[in-house]
Amino acid sequence: MAGKVLLIEDEPHIVEAISFLLERAGWQVFTHSNGQDAAEVAGRIAPDVIILDNMLPNKSGIDVLREIRADATTSGKPVLMLTAKGQARDKAAAEEAGVSMFMTKPFSNQAIIDTVKMLAQ
């Protein structure tokens, strides 16, 4: 087992595709679909890598990231943020909030596997 990944994303078909890819690569994948209690879920699962979509229902990805960084149990976890092109302002805010890396949608399957592996090292 490579480790634990928490995928916070509200698009179910993206969740299914990424989960399938990462599980085949040996990761144990946990999923969550809204921003409201995402940080709390991250604290409970203690994943090795968190994949966080920027636009989530109830709370933005950046707000979730701030909460993750503010919690001692998750503050050091690598966070890969999924963004769309043209969200330059969001990127700047996410960098300020302590994001580890961005990945711009749409991305290749191999890119997300490689990035998660790199972040976990």
């Binding site: 698009e11 078909h13 993206i14 299914e16 595709a17 990424i18 399938f20 890819l21 085949r24 636009m55 769309a84 092109k85 043209g86 949608k105 749409p106 991305f107 290749s108 399957n109």
Partner: peptide, 22 residues
Amino acid sequence: TMHQILSNITAIRSTAGILDSM
């Protein structure tokens, strides 16, 4: 709308990639 379109494309690309390569 652009976010929605990019999300659709991401899902399609990832899913098609899985079906095509595995």
